[in-house]
């Protein structure tokens, strides 16, 4: 990507004001996928000076700054959430790439194929935006495009068990489907992503388990409830078949 101008704001207020006063300006975080973009933008706004790379743990939450790299997240938080955060990013390209990709970029871009989004959705993650404040990841995934700066990702620590499953052909391919099943402080959350649309919760699967259903039955409920589509990587019908398998396996692995 080519930028006619480039600035390094030192405060969030400055960054936000610049973003809104310059139509067509682009926020620069890890810039991994931006490198493949051939457009020209009038202004690039570098987030590097804003201190968004902290990892903190409160009594209730793990808080990841938006500029934390996936590798930093893996190495600092690998023991949390049954290793699900690590598992969710292990297929992404290799350590050199994960040193550059940020959690903020991954979440804010809402890519359908993201494995991390599925895990974060199952974990009942909240997002902190500079101007719009706090919202749930679920709300954000269903919002129209938001011209704001993501500053923090809050993951509640009250999850007792979680498992992540994904299906891809080559080991660093995009997922053809993924699923996460978590027993959180506010109940069962079963998320399915790469449909190819981004992660969505299956209420029907959670209800099924809560009423004493088996993992296989819960998986069938999720496959009936959620939508799947064709794209050049796989067909929707195949994705639905995968949903039956991955949700069941995630539930079994998590012991739910």
């Amino acid at each position: 990507m080519i930028f006619k101008e480039y600035v390094c704001p030192s405060t969030l207020a400055e960054a936000y004001e610049t973003l809104w006063s310059h139509p067509g300006s682009v926020l620069l975080g890890g810039c991994t996928l931006l490198r493949r973009n051939t457009r020209t933008s009038p202004l690039g706004i570098d987030l590097g000076g804003l201190g968004l790379n902290q990892i903190t743990k409160t009594g209730t939450d793990l808080i990841l700054g938006a500029s934390v790299s996936l590798r930093e997240m893996e190495t600092s938080c690998g023991d949390l959430f049954d290793g699900a955060l690590c598992k969710a990013v292990s297929a992404l390209g290799g350590i050199p790439l994960r040193n550059v990709i940020t959690v903020g970029g991954t979440v804010a871009s809402r890519f359908g194929t993201s494995d991390l989004l599925t895990v974060l959705l199952a974990l009942d993650t909240r997002l902190q935006f500079y101007h719009s404040g706090l919202c749930t990841l679920e709300e954000y995934l269903n919002m129209p495009p938001l011209r704001d700066i993501l500053t923090e990702i809050h993951i509640p620590l009250g999850c007792s068990r979680i498992a992540f499953q994904s299906m891809r052909n080559a080991c660093t391919d995009y997922a053809l489907l993924n699923a996460a099943a978590a027993d959180t402080a506010c109940g069962l959350r079963i998320a399915v992503g790469a449909r190819p649309m981004a992660a969505a919760l299956s209420e029907a699967a959670a209800d099924c388990i809560n009423r004493g259903g088996t993992p296989a039955q819960a998986a069938e409920a999720s496959a009936a409830e959620l939508k799947f589509a064709d794209n050049h990587r796989a067909g929707g019908a195949y994705r639905r078949e995968l949903c039956l398998v991955l949700v069941e396996r995630a539930l079994k692995e998590a012991g739910i």
Binding site: R36, N169, A170, C171, T172, D173, Y174, H232
Partner: peptide
Amino acid sequence: MLSDSYTEYHIPRRLD
């Protein structure tokens, strides 16, 4: 041709 990078075209990695 859509297979214009290694994110779209998958030559085997060591793990495969």
